[in-house]
């Protein structure tokens, strides 16, 4: 009996975060809808999702990295570098098929993610230091390969831009790509052995090693996936804004980390759900999208984001303490 009670409570708490987040999003949406009925229109929702797509794709990779107890600060510069490389190729060799360009972008991103993973697992660097270094290197290299010049809208081929602006059945490509990434991620995380081993590695690295999991390989894999998604979103970013600059996406890594934390991914590793980060990214998107709709200056955006994240992590700690306390109360009669 007592065990059952304990289980249900723990399960309840496990669901609590996503549920709380969902309730918060719904409440927020209703309030915004009352103040401005144009919020929940098809067009605006399409817009909102389109704007959230890149953030939510990156959140998948960041979640995996955070699950292994790491962090990746280099993603925004990796995006800029991979995107810039692709853009330069489009500018200088417009005859290359777009799909090949995309693959080159993906490959570049993956390569640098792989290097991050290698430095962190085999080189035993702290993730924050290794990826900080990588961030500098890639941001500088972006400038070098572009020689400080922009690639502008007219220099892109139409098919390149169409990757982000085109649509299928009225749904923007970015949304479709994000949906595909989420489906694959969900399958990978929940239904493949490798996916679960990444979680095991983060949940308890020591015993993962003892039970024969190649933890180094799991870490390298996570950072490589992060790199792959950075390469993907880098190319999409350039296509979407039809402009490649050496400071593209500067500082975007913090948004991604924040979306993950909002979505309930623990910085301590081992836990994080696809559904959670989707909601986290969505909340971020809504905060950005709705401020103008309800006549709040967009300059409030940052402060609101910061405050929401801070409150979310603190609320989480308080809830967890409550659970611990309840459990302790039961221990000695």
């Amino acid at each position: 009996m007592e065990n059952k009670l304990k289980n249900s409570f723990a399960d309840y708490f496990d669901q609590f975060r996503e549920l709380g987040l969902l309730v918060f999003i719904v409440t927020l949406s209703i309030i915004v809808q009352i103040r401005n009925p144009s919020f929940l229109t098809g067009e605006n929702i399409n817009d909102l999702l389109k704007n959230t797509a890149i953030l939510s794709i990156l959140a998948v990779g960041m979640m995996l990295v955070l699950v292994t107890r790491g962090i990746d600060l280099s993603i925004a510069s990796n995006m800029a570098f991979s995107g810039m490389l692709a853009s330069l190729l489009v500018r200088d060799f417009p005859q290359i098929p777009t799909i090949l360009i995309l693959l080159i972008g993906l490959g570049t991103g993956t390569f640098f993610g792989f290097i991050n993973g290698l430095l962190i697992s085999k080189g035993r660097l702290l993730p924050i230091i290794a990826t900080l270094g990588m961030m500098y290197v890639l941001r500088g290299s972006t400038f070098l390969i572009s020689k400080g010049k922009w690639v502008s809208a007219y220099q892109f081929t139409d098919s390149f831009k169409a990757m982000a602006t085109g649509s299928v059945f009225g749904i923007n490509n970015l949304i479709l790509i994000a949906a595909a990434v989420y489906l694959i991620a969900y399958y990978f995380i929940n239904h493949t052995g490798t996916g679960r081993r990444i979680y095991a590695t983060g949940s308890n690295p020591e015993s993962a090693k003892i039970s024969g999991i190649n933890t180094d390989r799991m870490i390298i894999l996570s950072y490589s996936i992060m790199g792959l998604l950075s390469g993907l979103t880098g190319v999409l970013w350039m296509a979407r804004f039809a402009s490649a600059q050496s400071d593209s996406a500067m500082g975007y890594e913090m948004n991604v980390i924040a979306a993950c934390v909002l979505g309930g991914v623990s910085m301590g590793g081992g836990s994080g759900k696809v559904g959670g980060i989707f909601l986290g990214a969505l909340l971020f998107g809504i905060l950005n999208n709705t401020l103008p709709l309800i006549n709040i200056s967009p300059f409030w955006q940052n402060a609101l984001q910061g405050a929401v994240i801070l409150l979310a992590v603190i609320a989480n700690v308080l809830a967890k303490r409550q659970v611990t306390k309840k459990n302790l109360n039961r221990r000695i009669k």
């Binding site: 979680y199 949940s203 308890n204 020591e206 039970s211 024969g212 081992g270």
Partner: peptide, 16 residues
């Protein structure tokens, strides 16, 4: 105990 606290009992049993 060398378990994975963030995973379910079934996963802990079958990991690997």
């Amino acid at each position: 105990v060398t378990c994975y606290p963030d995973l379910t009992v079934a996963e802990n049993i079958f990991i690997g």
